[in-house]
Measured scan of single mutants.
Amino acid sequence: NQASVVANQLIPINTALTLAMMRSEVVTPVGIPAEDIPRLVSMQVNRAVPLGTTLMPDMVKGYA
């Protein structure tokens, strides 16, 4: 099963992502692949992401 990127904390809108904000977890539906975590660092979210939410490509500016 593919691990996805999950929010490790509440991430406010327009926040630049850091490693501490993300974790890898096997979830359904599948979100951004966990191997993309290094690429996500310093990218901004375009909405508030609650703790435990799977990051989807449309939630991260410049990812999709």
Rank of each mutant, 00 (worst) to 15 (best):
G52T: 03
Q9P: 00
L55A: 01
L19E: 09
M59A: 10
N46Y: 06
I32Q: 00
E25H: 04
I37F: 03
I32S: 01
A7Y: 00
G62S: 09
N14L: 10
N1L: 14
N1K: 03
P38L: 11
V49Q: 02
N8S: 13
S4D: 00
D36W: 05
S24L: 06
T54C: 04
K61M: 10
T53I: 08
A3G: 13
T18A: 14
Y63S: 03
E25K: 03
R47L: 12
Q2R: 03
A48L: 06
A3F: 09
D36L: 10
I32E: 00
G31P: 01
Q44I: 10
P29T: 05
T15N: 05
D36N: 15
A64D: 14
A3Y: 09
N8I: 12
V26E: 15
N8T: 09
E25M: 04
P38H: 12
P29K: 05
P50Q: 15
M22R: 00
G52Q: 06
T54I: 13
A48G: 07
E35R: 03
Y63G: 03
A3D: 14
N8M: 07
T15M: 09
E35Q: 07
P50A: 10
I11Q: 01
I37P: 01
P12I: 09
P12Y: 11
S4Y: 07
V6P: 00
M59P: 02
I32H: 01
V49S: 02
E25P: 00
G31R: 02
D36Y: 08
R39V: 07
V41G: 03
D58K: 04
V30W: 05
V27G: 03
A48I: 12
I13H: 14
V5M: 02
M22T: 03
G52L: 06
G52K: 05
A20F: 13
L10T: 14
M22D: 02
G31L: 01
S24Q: 09
L10C: 14
A3R: 04
G31W: 02
N46I: 15
L55R: 00
Q9T: 15
L19I: 13
R39E: 04
T53K: 05
M21D: 06
T18N: 10
V60C: 02
A16E: 11
P12A: 08
T18S: 11
A34V: 12
L17M: 08
L19T: 15
Q2L: 12
A34H: 13
V27C: 04
L19V: 13
A20G: 08
I13V: 12
L10I: 11
V49K: 01
V27Q: 05
N8Q: 08
R23P: 02
P57H: 08
T28I: 04
V49E: 01
L10M: 14
K61V: 12
P33T: 10
T28W: 03
Y63M: 06
V49D: 01
L17P: 03
P38F: 05
A64I: 15
E25D: 15
T54N: 02
L17T: 00
L17A: 00
E35A: 12
V60N: 02
N46T: 13
L10V: 11
S24F: 08
L10R: 05
M56P: 02
M21I: 05
L51S: 13
R23D: 08
L40D: 00
A7K: 00
S24G: 12
Q44T: 13
T53G: 13
Q2M: 12
N8R: 10
M56K: 06
A48R: 07
M56R: 09
I11R: 00
L55T: 00
V41C: 04
S42M: 10
V6I: 12
A34D: 14
A20Q: 13
A20D: 10
S4I: 02
V45K: 00
V5H: 00
M43N: 04
G62Q: 11
T28F: 05
A48W: 04
A64F: 03
V49C: 03
G62L: 08
M22Y: 01
V41Y: 06
E35I: 06
R39Y: 14
Y63P: 06
S24A: 12
M43L: 12
Q44E: 08
A7R: 01
D58Q: 08
P33Q: 11
A3W: 04
E35W: 06
R39D: 03
S42V: 04
M56T: 12
Q9W: 13
T18F: 04
L51Y: 08
P57T: 12
I11W: 00
N14M: 11
M43Q: 10
S42F: 09
G31V: 02
S42I: 03
S24P: 13
N14C: 11
V30Q: 09
L17F: 03
T28R: 02
E25W: 03
T18I: 09
T28Q: 10
T28D: 15
A20W: 15
V27P: 02
T15E: 11
L19Y: 14
R47Q: 12
L40W: 02
N8F: 09
G31S: 02
I11N: 01
P57K: 09
E35M: 04
V5W: 00
A16I: 13
R39L: 08
S24E: 12
R23G: 10
R39W: 05
I32V: 14
A20C: 13
L55E: 01
P38K: 11
V49T: 11
I37S: 06
P57L: 05
T53D: 09
D36G: 04
A16P: 14
N1M: 15
V30M: 11
V60Y: 00
P12R: 08
T15I: 07
P50G: 04
A20M: 08
V41L: 13
